[in-house]
Nucleic acid binder design. Structure first.
Lengths: 252, 252
DNA sequence: TCGCGGCACTTGTTTGAACAAGTTTCCACG
DNA sequence: CGTGGAAACTTGTTCAAACAAGTGCCGCGA
């Protein structure tokens, strides 16, 4: 049985305002109705209305100050997480066509760094995948992944040029829940240069990722190298009490 | 004249609790005092205490649910936002000694890209700051900032080698609330190379930042270039319904 | 001994009121 | 005509009170 009670009043007020903003009814830069007006419109007390406004402020949707009516700020982003996890999904959401060329998929002993990150012994078997990711046919990112053996074995019945590895693993019951991303810059080595069609030593944007499943077990270590002229990372954050960064990749 | 009034009560309560958490007085997993106890301790009404708790909740410091007392969540990152914003504060929190050498501070017409980002006319006056940031005396990051004129003028009575520009601006009533960070990689130009003591063309980690104040007005555009062997960015994110990434800079 | 109900406690929601502090508007005075 | 300042309006802070809803524990009964 699903409980279907009416949500609290301050949620309804916040939802209503969010709707007006996303619908463009309250355009960016416009002032919201005053608290007194909102009280009347929703038949709520001022405390309740202020609770709703505080929520919007925390989401970075509105700004303002004492004595000044709140103002709609630039639109926010919706689903940053999955976007950051899956290249395929990210590309689709941007209206670009993702592509991939699997250079290699192999089972071999874990490298020292991969073993360290995954918390397994060096030389323990892992499945390594080297894939070149394309955006509208242009080489954009080179992905070197190491999966722990019980997960990686599921990749051998995966059409490597079909699309998202994550979607495939999810079908098999592996759901990647959390990830730690470490971002830095590195010069292209010879393999990078050849596949990404840049000069050796050209600056690349590197994202190293340690992904864990629902139980917290470390599942994947990846080293992704992006062409910085094609992809950047963007983080939005707001201080208004809550830290609510929105993370997204963008093509500049 | 610097205003020095006592901050609102709910801020003081929140600060006190933040302090206890970061000091380890309230360890991770421990339950906070009940609202009623906090009311008594701070001689505040329940509404005020709840305002403070809401702030901590928004920062991800505490979690809990109806009927359950709030619990201290993983201490991992305390102040990710300010950490991401202020080099000085970040360094201190890591136990490193921040330093800076101000190469130049000038008032000149905005460059095309700065004008575009700040939403002002090209050539309109901005205050540009070029600072080399050090970590334990080692050149680590090169910061090129452009502030809009009414804010930047406050920097002329600022000891440029004293420490945090943001702290100085906050004293003057400018509080940077939100920022959009764009991260990519770029090869060092000759100035970068000389000041950061790397080779020309060496890969650098670049963070471009557009900071806005409480009212949403764009205040600063910055181009920060980090030595990737000394600093990386780390993002933790979890899918569990809520998007709550923690962002921090790390020295690898 | 085990299980279940109820009680005590805690947080969530909502209202109403009052004062403080910052902004905007507009009128009267120079 | 313009300008200073008061008045009206707006948000920020704080208190007090009441009920709803969820949690945990204790004790009673089977």
């Amino acid at each position: 049985m699903v409980k279907s009670v009416t949500p609290p009043l301050h949620h309804r007020v916040a939802d209503a305002l969010r709707g007006r903003i996303s619908r463009g009814q309250l355009p960016v830069g416009a002032a919201l109705p005053s608290e007194a007006q909102l009280c009347e419109e929703f038949a709520a007390s001022r405390g309740t209305v202020r609770q709703a406004l505080a929520a919007l402020r925390n989401e970075g949707l509105i700004g303002g100050g004492q004595g000044k009516q709140p103002v709609v700020r630039q639109a926010a982003v919706a689903q940053p997480f999955e976007t950051f996890l899956s290249f395929t999904r990210w590309a689709r959401e941007m209206g670009r066509e993702p592509g991939q060329r699997t250079v290699e998929i192999a089972r071999r002993g874990a490298s020292q760094v991969a073993a360290d990150v995954l918390g397994i012994d060096e030389g323990a078997p892992v499945i390594e995948v080297l894939r070149l990711r394309l955006l509208d046919g242009i080489p954009t990112m080179l992905e070197r992944s190491s999966f722990i053996e019980p997960v990686g074995r599921l990749l051998f019945d995966f059409d490597p040029d079909a699309g998202s590895i994550y979607a495939h693993l999810l079908d098999r019951g592996i759901d990647l829940r959390a990830a730690r991303h470490t971002i830095d810059a590195i010069g292209a080595d010879e393999v990078d240069a050849k596949l990404l069609t840049v000069a050796v030593g050209a600056p690349l944007l590197r994202e190293r990722r340690r992904a864990t499943d629902a139980s917290g077990a470390r599942v994947e270590y990846a080293d992704d190298r992006y062409r910085p002229d094609l992809v950047t990372f963007t983080i939005d954050n707001v201080q208004a009490g809550r830290i609510s960064p929105h993370i997204l990749k963008e093509t500049p």
